[in-house]
Design a protein around this nucleic acid. Structure first.
Length: 317
DNA sequence: TCTGGATGTCAAC
DNA sequence: TTGACCTCCAGAC
């Protein structure tokens, strides 16, 4: 699934292209018919993300919120006129690599926008404005919530490294020791890690402890921190927790900026001149059996809770 | 044409 | 811990 960075990009895209507009909402597949009827004809106020959860907020009373979780297979496709700048597809990779599919503009020779094409495949939800459209396929969740219900969903989630306050100075005792102001995000991360003996490799995938991290960021952040995935979360040193949080913030922010997950530092890419995607983008993820980029060891893989965990026994021992 | 796999989550056992 | 959910694509046959 797209990890947290993709959902934040989606929220931005929804706000940019649907914000302030009255939209038509339908469910060509038929599995979201009742929800679509609740939203059809309403104005999109904006969109937000918390971890891997996308919320699209509707007016005029602000009491209707569309919640979408893409799950493992979900993806959005966008299309429209010049107001629809940005990615035209965000979500599951569909075997085309993690990178999103860039949108076309009229300058590319595309015909002028004349409404959405007939739905292809299982389109769970279609949203259409005067300028373009969005199709949702394969999501694990697509529902309409009241404000209270939305707050309840968010309350169950851990801190998001992409939250606005993620790097408040002094938040985790790092940036400025003189600043004792508690951080609602970094401090919460440290508190939730310190409260469990569960292995850190499992904790990072638990959305109630940290929201937005998935299998790639889990493996890559632990490698970059030199952290043994089997170490109990509450055994991590405070400076390790602090560094891990800061690295997650940096990695996910880069993912939002670039629209893809690249975790390797330039010095660790054997051929910096070549395109780094996909061969050089990761340290350990999907590199089982290959030599570590930083030591002579071979990258290992083990199944943990049904998901593949990649790590380097040399760097993370 | 069939099968396996994928950046996820939840309920049942 | 396991299986269901659910969609698409690449590779095997």
């Amino acid at each position: 699934m797209p990890e947290g960075h993709s959902i934040h990009r989606l929220a931005r895209q929804f706000t940019d292209v649907f914000g302030g507009q009255r939209v038509r909402v339908s469910s060509p597949q038929g599995r979201f018919t009742a929800g679509a009827a609740l939203l059809d004809g309403r104005e999109v106020v904006g969109a937000s993300a918390h971890g891997k959860q996308l919320f699209v907020h509707f007016g005029p009373d602000g009491a209707h919120h569309l919640r979408v979780h893409l799950g493992l297979y979900g993806a959005f496709d966008f299309g429209g006129d010049e107001h629809f700048a940005g990615a035209s597809s965000i979500g599951a990779p569909r075997r085309i690599g993690e990178r999103e599919v860039a949108g076309c503009t009229p300058d590319d020779g595309e015909p002028a926008y004349a409404g959405p094409p007939p739905p292809v495949g299982a389109v769970r939800m279609r949203m259409v404005s005067d300028h373009g459209w969005a199709d949702l396929r394969g999501a694990s969740a697509c529902e309409v919530l009241s404000t209270e219900e939305m707050r309840a969903v968010r309350a169950k989630l851990g801190p998001d490294p992409l939250a606005a306050d993620a790097l408040v100075p002094g938040a985790a005792g790092r940036a400025d020791p003189e600043d004792a102001a508690p951080s609602s995000s970094a401090g919460e991360f440290a508190r939730r890690l310190g409260a469990t003996r569960t292995m850190i490799g499992t904790v990072l995938m638990d959305q109630a402890r940290v929201a937005g991290v998935g299998n790639i960021y889990r493996a890559e952040a632990l490698f970059r921190g030199g952290i043994d995935p089997w170490l109990s979360a509450n055994r991590l040193a405070p400076e390790q927790v602090d560094a891990l949080w800061c690295d997650l913030v940096a990695l996910l922010r880069a993912g939002v900026r670039d629209g893809r997950i690249v975790t390797t530092d330039e010095a660790d890419r054997p051929d910096p001149a070549s395109a780094i995607w996909p061969e050089q983008a990761h340290y350990v993820y999907q590199r089982a059996g290959q030599r570590c980029r930083r030591c002579p060891q071979t990258v290992a893989v083990t199944e943990v809770s049904g998901r593949k965990l990649y790590w380097c026994p040399g760097c993370q021992g």
